[in-house]
Simulated assay, not measured.
Amino acid sequence: MGFFDKIREGLSKTKKNISVQLNGMFATFTGANEEFFEELEETLILADLGVETVDKAVTRLREITKREGFLKGEDIERALEDILTELIEVGDSALRLATTPAVILVIGVNGVGKTTTIGKLALKFKNEGKKVLLCAGDTFRAAAAEQLTVWAQRAGADIVRHEEGSDPASVIFDGIAAAKSRGADVIICDTAGRLHNKQNLMNELNKISRIIDRELPDADRETLLAIDATTGQNGLTQAREFKETAGITGLILTKLDGTAKGGIVFAIADQLQVPVKLVGIGEKPEDLLEFDGREFVEALLK
């Protein structure tokens, strides 16, 4: 099953909110009047694309429709697909991991699925023939290191962990040293996930970042923010806070299969101008997918 089919299946709850409504609008399209655009705005907002992003999309669609004089629903639908694709494709969605080792720092609040996502990534890289080392940098959440250890064993990856309550930055430091000595291709670091408005959490992330910069100054590095798609607009708030303080390079949208408001992907990517790099649409390891904006839009609307 390819990305399109998987994402279409994973977006089934969101599709009930948006594609049926849109398909009806395009099928009965008789002209781009004000009533049509108001209904379109309402449909997109209900799918949680965000008021600002919807306003931008519909404004562009009005301009194109006026210029092209669309008379068929399929023409205006195609134009909407192009606009939404442009809004969601902000920067390179591919992971930058060319150096040996390369580093992935996964951040986000508790409960968004960071540790599980790291485990799935480890399996993905192992299947690609890479040597992976995991760093259990979430030393505050009970059993976080144990959970990550289970994933490491499942993926055949090395893991560096300390006692619960240890300094997270020291775990990352030791993990980098181990990766160098063992010839690891990818280092994936778990981090603590206390509330995003807690200054001490941001201080810890900054400390970890400085250690990576010092110990691996030339390494490719991704700082990926994991967001639970079911949280809707609250996910946008989290992303904005983390972007301001942690320098994120990409987004991981988790639990996309569990929400009727998967449109939040558009709001976050568009308003923060940070690319979506991975999406989670199920519990299985193969349900963590590399993001493709065009196919995402088509799977959502078709």
Rank of each mutant, 00 (worst) to 15 (best):
272 L>Q: 02
275 P>K: 14
262 G>K: 04
260 A>V: 08
272 L>I: 09
252 I>V: 15
271 Q>R: 07
272 L>M: 02
274 V>S: 10
269 A>G: 04
256 L>W: 12
260 A>C: 07
268 I>T: 04
271 Q>N: 04
257 D>L: 15
261 K>Y: 12
269 A>I: 04
286 E>W: 02
279 V>D: 02
267 A>V: 01
285 P>A: 14
273 Q>P: 06
265 V>M: 13
259 T>C: 14
275 P>D: 11
256 L>M: 07
257 D>N: 06
285 P>Y: 13
283 E>M: 01
265 V>Y: 12
283 E>N: 03
250 G>P: 00
251 L>C: 06
261 K>E: 05
264 I>E: 10
248 I>Q: 03
270 D>F: 03
253 L>Q: 12
272 L>S: 01
276 V>H: 14
285 P>S: 13
278 L>V: 04
274 V>P: 08
257 D>S: 03
279 V>W: 08
278 L>R: 10
275 P>Y: 07
284 K>S: 14
285 P>F: 15
253 L>I: 03
280 G>A: 04
282 G>C: 06
283 E>I: 15
273 Q>V: 14
250 G>A: 10
266 F>C: 01
256 L>Y: 07
259 T>D: 15
261 K>L: 12
270 D>T: 12
258 G>D: 05
283 E>Y: 11
261 K>M: 10
269 A>K: 03
272 L>G: 00
249 T>N: 05
273 Q>F: 15
256 L>I: 10
278 L>G: 11
286 E>T: 14
272 L>A: 05
278 L>D: 13
268 I>H: 14
251 L>M: 09
259 T>E: 12
256 L>S: 08
271 Q>C: 15
250 G>F: 08
282 G>Q: 00
270 D>A: 12
266 F>K: 00
277 K>Y: 14
284 K>Y: 03
261 K>H: 05
285 P>M: 13
278 L>C: 10
268 I>Y: 13
254 T>W: 08
248 I>F: 00
286 E>N: 14
257 D>H: 12
267 A>P: 07
280 G>H: 07
269 A>C: 11
267 A>Y: 00
280 G>I: 04
272 L>E: 01
273 Q>S: 10
280 G>K: 06
271 Q>F: 11
249 T>P: 11
256 L>R: 10
279 V>G: 04
273 Q>R: 06
258 G>I: 04
